[in-house]
Amino acid sequence: MQWELNSDRPVYVQLIEQIQAGIISGYYKPGDKLPSVRDLAAEATVNPNTMQKALSELERTGLIYTNRTSGRYITSDEVMIKKLKGQSAKDQIMEFLDKMKLLGFNSEEIIALIKEIMNNTE
């Protein structure tokens, strides 16, 4: 998995986002076993403490659970994942709409533009 980290936001926040993105995209499938904290941290080139913080937060929201003897797993709760996917999509759309509004487009123009581009790329 490609980890892209900016330097002006807390690392653990970005790690949470990227793991969530991994779950949504299917890179981490429901029920998958995660590598150890240290391996994940080495993969992302971050501090194991920080990775631990991110994983704990994800555990708190239920996306990850810990089996005491065998490690950390992605939740098998497909409903939760779907909800996460939906929320992520919403965030992307809101961001997109904000940007389009800044460029000066109104809602009808935006929808027309989307339809046109989607037809061309199919």
């Binding site: 330097s7 690392v11 080495a42 971050v46 501090n47 194991p48 403490n49």
Partner: peptide
């Protein structure tokens, strides 16, 4: 990578450097 992989909760790693951008993400 070596520093991260060798991390243990009882030990502290003190890194003296002036190349900050490269190691920020690793520092507590």
């Amino acid at each position: 990578n070596t520093i991260i992989s060798n991390y243990n909760e009882n030990a502290t790693v003190l890194i003296s450097t002036h190349l900050i951008a490269d190691i920020e993400n690793v520092l507590d």
